[in-house]
Amino acid sequence: MSENARTPLADRVDPIRDWSVRRTYLAGDFRAEDLVAAKAGRRVSVVLPARNEESTVGVIVAALRSELVERVPLIDELVVIDSHSADGTADVARAAGARVVAQGDVLPALGDVPGKGEALWKSLAATDGDVVAFLDSDLRDFDPAFATGLLGPLLTEPGVVFCKGAYERPLDDGRTVLPAGGGRVTELVARPLLAIHWPALAGFVQPLAGEYAGTRQALESIPFAGAYGVDIGILVDLFESFGLDALAQVDLG
């Protein structure tokens, strides 16, 4: 008889549940003012990869700049990586207060391929923060607490090198918008895939989320998929390099 079979059910440890309890946070757990003190000399970069997002990117940049650059000096660099936009994304982002970097201008000798992954890995060469947070530039109803939530565990919890956003996704069926039920690719493909091949990652609510942050040291140690598999690829590669306890998630609401 195995040791586990002799252990009462109530005493058995579920490693995924144990991780989820210890490494899942709420965005509201962290105040920007407290995180400024917790930086302890570290620099923070916030990056928005953007392609044809002129309708949303300006609002996000303006909110971040107002709250977390000017009111509270948490963000040291606020950068939009423009991935060959054909609209006014770059102009809108620049007017709102971001430094705009054209994806194709970063390390041009290494090429320039389409896809979010290219914008993300090149952003590491275009920034110098010790901690780097990535936020999608098409978010609506944006709250600067998204940034403070993602940065919180990295700045306050020793050993955490990566933090992934989690949230409920509304479902728009064309007739009405329901408060939950969206994210069918996540529920039907991504999470079952992880459960089979990387079961330790089953506790991540939104493995495909584009909102996450990491230490530069960790992010520079892994490859970035060139296309749109980058979000889940980063999660898997960091897990294999640093282990589950170095990863966290934060409930952004």
Rank of each mutant, 00 (worst) to 15 (best):
A119Y: 01
D91Y: 10
V177P: 07
A180N: 12
A133C: 14
L110G: 15
D91E: 14
L78H: 02
V69Q: 07
V69L: 09
D172H: 14
A93N: 11
A119V: 01
A126T: 14
G181M: 01
L139Q: 09
D143R: 15
A145F: 01
P170I: 14
D91T: 12
R94K: 14
A96S: 06
V132S: 02
D143Q: 09
A109F: 14
A93I: 04
I81K: 03
R99D: 11
S123R: 06
V79P: 02
G97H: 03
E77D: 06
V177W: 10
W121K: 10
S123A: 15
V79G: 00
L110T: 13
L171C: 10
G97S: 08
L78C: 05
D82M: 01
G129C: 07
A109Q: 15
L74T: 11
F146N: 14
K122W: 02
D172L: 09
D172G: 08
G111K: 05
D138C: 08
P170C: 13
K164D: 08
A119T: 04
P114V: 07
V100I: 09
D173I: 13
D87K: 12
L155I: 03
D136T: 04
F162D: 01
S85Q: 07
G111T: 02
A125E: 07
A145K: 05
A126I: 08
P73R: 15
D105V: 05
L135S: 04
S66W: 09
R175N: 07
D76S: 13
S83C: 05
P153S: 09
G149D: 05
G115S: 12
D105W: 02
V100K: 04
A147C: 15
A145H: 03
A145C: 10
L124H: 12
G104T: 08
G149P: 04
L171P: 03
T127G: 05
P73T: 13
D130E: 10
V131S: 04
V177N: 11
A180E: 12
D172I: 15
G181F: 00
S123D: 10
L78Y: 01
L151D: 07
L171H: 12
R65T: 09
G165Q: 03
D87E: 09
R65N: 07
G117I: 11
A102F: 01
L151I: 12
G152E: 04
L171R: 14
P144T: 08
S137N: 13
L135H: 01
E70V: 15
P153R: 04
G104K: 08
V160I: 14
P153V: 08
P108F: 13
L74F: 11
I81D: 00
A86C: 01
L74Y: 06
A95W: 07
V160Q: 05
D138P: 03
V101P: 02
R65D: 10
S123C: 10
R169C: 06
W121Q: 06
E168C: 06
S137Y: 05
V132Y: 00
D128F: 15
D136V: 02
L120R: 08
R71T: 14
F146R: 13
